[in-house]
Amino acid sequence: MKQTLTLTINGKSYSDEVEPRLLLIHYLREVAGLTGPHIGCETSICGACTVMLDGMAVKSCTMFAVQAEGRSVLTIEGLAQNGKLDPLQEAFWNEHALQCGFCTPGMIMTARQLLADNPSPSEQEIRHGLEGNLCRCTGYQHIVNAVKAVAKAGGA
């Protein structure tokens, strides 16, 4: 049986009738039309689906959309403001922190919380902070560089 879901995504309010079993990632991608967050696994390992829920990074494949009732979601699409890239987006570009790009939206969202919690992380802290996001292309080194660059420039 469907129920009404009302939430805010990237500052905009949404209201839809959804099945309780609809995963948040499917809601974002297929109902709200925000295909930035991706699905890379179903076991809460890869982190490609990471979005921010009330300012905290979460894996939207391991959450029912109805759990987000009344809450605020930020996806990769909500980062750039008025065409100006967010510092993490800019740094990922400058440092070549992506290749195929599939993990990138999730990686950036996790890095965002990492820097919010710890504005000047060490290399090991960055690596540990990205534990929940898999990248198969980059070997992570340029991703570490990108996060470092943002920290050095004064944060996300």
């Binding site: 905290m56 979460v58 996790t110 990492l114 902070g129 534990e131 929940g132």
Partner: peptide
């Protein structure tokens, strides 16, 4: 535990 996303939820 796990990773930050898991610890957040």
């Amino acid at each position: 535990i796990g990773d930050i996303q898991v610890r957040n939820m």
